[in-house]
Amino acid sequence: MDYLSALKSLRLVAIPRLAAGGRWRVEAMRAYSEACLLWFTKGQGRITIAGVTRGYTAHNAIFIPPGVMHGFEVGPQVFGTAVFFGRDCPVPLPKEPQHLRIRETFAAQELNVTLDAILREMSADTPAHDRATLAHLGLLGVWLERQIARAAPEQQKPDAAKRLVARYTALLEREFRSGMGVADFANSLGVTPTHLTRCCKLACGRPASALLHDRLIFEARRLLSETDLPVNLIAGSLGFTSAAYFTRAFQHQTGKSPTAFRRAG
């Protein structure tokens, strides 16, 4: 692998900018094809990762591997940095989601300094700035590994309900375009729809159907705002049996018809 070429997809984005096109871009359930680190420096809210909802506050570092469904609140007082590592990140990264509550001031400062250094070298035109970026990115990977090891004794293993919901959200992320309903997902997971919904409510306060609809409507909004695909093709690509059914579901979730949403964007 050409490590320096892989760095071209590395991005650091201010968290408020993630919601610049609408809060739905961060609050609705979705997944990235690359790993992401959210570092909150101010504010608080709730974040749902793999179907489990927790609160976050300042000095929380949240690592989300590729393909893991998530969404989080981002109010006007929330600030921080999102690191998108790209699909071919050369640095070893965690395989599981991590929610790290950084209590030591020096550890928070260390992360801030590392992120500042990455951003500075990425935007520089000085000799070897690519290698310097890679070196600081490696230090970010080390910081994550050490903080995860430090937090390990306090981490609680997920109970059976949370494990089931994590399996559901992983399957949902792969198959949400298929037209499957909650009963189909439950059958694939070997449980009843009632049990799946009960576990979802325990893990994140929402029924299984809400997670499914949230994921579908996020994708619909993304396609409406970022492509010129006709509404009927978007409906079909998301497994809806008709454009009329899709329009009713979209309007129920967003308060606007697909056409009105596209026009407003």
Rank of each mutant, 00 (worst) to 15 (best):
H70S: 07
V113W: 04
D125T: 15
T259L: 15
A166G: 11
A20N: 05
G205E: 11
V26T: 11
Q251A: 13
L119H: 13
P230G: 12
V74P: 03
S123N: 15
K256R: 11
S5F: 11
E104G: 01
F250L: 09
A170I: 02
C204S: 14
E96N: 08
E173I: 07
R17C: 08
V83K: 03
M122T: 12
V52M: 07
L216F: 00
L93P: 10
V182D: 12
A160N: 05
I234T: 10
V68D: 01
L38K: 07
E104I: 05
A50Y: 14
H129R: 10
D159K: 06
N60L: 03
S225M: 02
A28H: 09
C200D: 04
P230F: 06
T53F: 02
A151D: 09
A170M: 03
C36G: 04
S178W: 08
L139I: 02
G236P: 00
A243S: 14
R25W: 06
G55P: 02
I148K: 03
S242K: 11
A14G: 03
F185N: 03
K8I: 00
L100N: 04
I64S: 00
A149S: 14
T57E: 14
E34G: 04
Q77N: 11
Y168W: 08
G255F: 12
R262P: 05
S209N: 15
A166E: 12
I118E: 00
V191C: 14
L164S: 11
A151G: 04
T169W: 03
S209C: 05
I62Y: 00
R131Q: 15
V191Q: 09
P158M: 14
W143F: 07
I64D: 00
G67V: 07
S237T: 05
E154C: 00
H195C: 04
P127L: 08
R206Q: 05
A210T: 13
R163H: 12
G205A: 05
S242W: 14
V142C: 00
P94W: 06
T241N: 07
P76D: 15
W24K: 04
A243V: 13
R248W: 08
S237H: 08
V13W: 00
Q147F: 00
N112R: 08
G55T: 08
A220V: 02
K162Q: 15
L38A: 02
P16L: 04
V142Y: 01
F79Y: 04
I234P: 04
T81V: 15
N187Y: 09
T133N: 03
T192K: 13
A235R: 05
K157C: 03
C36E: 12
K8P: 01
L171Q: 06
A249W: 01
V191W: 10
Y168F: 15
K42R: 14
